[in-house]
């Protein structure tokens, strides 16, 4: 099959490449673009390790063809850092609350949690657990992931209030 000319935005930059339409977005990101934040956990749409933000939605990039992402705006965990390159509040809270052990699920967890907090800046613990249900972790038992996300929400809201 012939390759197609793919153009999309990744972490704010316009990127292009040649790829077969059947190439999965996760493989295009990791192999063509060397954006290796999103991980391949299961490749069967179950684990969420490959989660990226695509046009404002949390999406499993192992279940999207690069052709479908033509023209899309994609953000990965790499794109969530502060403009000066330091860790975002959410990333920092994962570190502080031990929201990771082996770290394999973490890029997907953080990318998903980022969108969750954009949509619901004041989640309850229940909201966090329901909203993170598409991401599996084999190490932490989730407790600390939930704590990290709730702590990030609290800090974000305090900062917002202080700025007002």
């Amino acid at each position: 099959m012939s390759k197609m000319h793919v153009k999309l935005k990744v972490n704010g930059d316009e990127v292009e490449g040649l790829a077969e339409p059947r190439t999965l977005l996760i493989h295009f990101l990791r192999e063509n673009l060397k954006v290796t934040g999103p991980h391949v956990g299961c490749e069967t749409s179950h684990c969420g390790a490959c989660t990226v933000d695509m046009d404002g939605k949390s999406v499993k990039s192992c279940t999207v063809f690069v052709a479908q992402a033509q023209g899309a705006d994609v953000t990965t965990v790499e794109g969530l850092v502060n403009p000066d390159g330091s860790l975002s509040v959410l990333q920092e809270m994962f570190r502080e609350h031990h929201g990771l052990q082996c770290g394999f699920c973490t890029p997907g967890m953080i990318t998903r949690a980022h969108r969750l907090l954009q949509e619901n800046p004041t989640p309850t613990e229940e909201d966090v657990r329901f909203g993170m249900a598409g991401n599996l972790c084999r190490c932490t038992g989730y407790q600390n992931i939930v704590k990290a996300i709730l702590a990030a929400a609290e800090i974000n809201n305090a900062q917002k209030e202080a700025a007002e």
Partner: peptide
């Protein structure tokens, strides 16, 4: 149905 990621698409 499914999980949040699946429901977005």
């Amino acid at each position: 149905i499914a999980d949040p990621q699946v429901r977005y698409v």
